[in-house]
């Protein structure tokens, strides 16, 4: 952790990030996730190689890169969603607030209760709007009663934070499937934050949405980042540039002997630096649109 701090201090004078960070009440450098030498395998195939990066609290961290570069795979390691894939295997050290996420005895269910997720395609349950948001609080035992009282407040609060309360308040009991795609995605965000997680992982949350709905989600991310650390995977470089504090650029390496492709982390830095003055030529050619 000291490493990181000193590294950033050395960088900050010319990027201007230092002043911006210094205005915030948070002390720079609170690390949520620390990944060292993380490798992900699907069976014998190595999907991601040697990822080292640290994700900071109350920031938006973007993962960008071309298709197949492993950005989603790495994201799904952070809340152990890869456990759902029988052949997936994670190697290396992956720490969440200093705790080893893949240690023996760590329950993936407990991990996911602290680290919420929003998916690429809006995936509300075929239940009412209310029941969608209430799902997490109900199953995690946040509320004693399964209806009314506290739960109503939690649902309203989550819908307000996800900027969809005004559109949803008059039809809480109607099916979530009757909403538009953008509304469904904001509902999914409301559902994810209803359990008050520490981190929100977003896997290309806007890729199925039109520009107006996308703008809604981006505004929303800015509003909630003071409460939740956000990690977002995106195909859209402009989006990464607009919303994120730091950006990790992943790329693909073709293994010449087996013709398989492995994702690698090329560069990780403050977003403005990644887009204005990247250290690696591959990053530069990607962000300037020369490949990918």
């Amino acid at each position: 952790m000291e490493n990181v701090v000193s590294e950033q201090q050395s960088k900050s004078p010319d990027t201007g990030t230092d002043t911006r960070r210094a205005e915030g009440p948070k002390v720079e450098g609170d690390v949520v996730f620390a990944l060292s030498n993380v490798n992900v395998f699907y069976g014998a195939f190595r999907a991601v190689r040697d990822v080292n990066l640290q994700i900071h609290e109350q920031e938006i961290t973007a993962f960008i890169g071309p298709s197949g570069c492993g950005k989603t795979t790495v994201l799904r390691c952070l809340n152990r969603m890869n456990d759902l894939i029988a052949i997936a295997r994670v190697e290396g050290d992956l720490r969440y607030h200093g705790m080893d996420l893949y240690a023996n005895g760590v329950d993936a269910v407990e991990v996911r209760r602290r680290i919420g997720m929003v998916f690429q395609k809006p995936n509300p349950f075929p239940k009412s709007i209310y029941d969608n948001v209430a799902y997490g609080p109900r199953i995690t035992g946040m509320v004693k009663k399964k209806k009314g009282g506290d739960l109503d407040d939690i649902v309203e609060n989550a819908l307000r934070k996800a900027a969809i309360w005004d559109e949803a308040k008059d039809r809480l009991d109607s099916s979530a499937l009757g909403m538009s795609g953008g509304q469904q995605q904001r509902l999914c965000i409301a559902r994810a934050i209803a359990t008050n997680p520490d981190v929100l992982l977003m896997d290309e949350p806007c890729s199925a949405l039109d520009p107006i709905a996308t703008a809604h989600i981006e505004d929303l991310m800015q509003q909630i980042k003071s409460e939740y650390s956000i990690v977002i995977v995106t195909h859209n470089m402009q989006q990464a540039a607009r919303v994120s504090d730091r950006t990790a650029f992943f790329s693909v390496e073709v293994n010449p002997d087996s013709d398989t492709r492995t994702g690698v982390l090329v560069e990780y830095d403050h977003t403005d630096r990644i887009f204005s003055n990247p250290a690696d030529p591959r990053t530069e050619s990607y962000v300037t649109g020369r490949f990918g």
């Binding site: 269910v109 996911r112 997720m117 998916f119 995936n123 997490g136 199953i139 559902r191 994810a192 359990t195």
Partner: peptide, 15 residues
């Protein structure tokens, strides 16, 4: 039933 719903539920910390 789409897997997306199972993922959504697992992602909420459901057993």
């Amino acid at each position: 039933v789409p897997d997306a719903l199972r993922e959504a539920s697992a992602g909420m910390g459901a057993r």
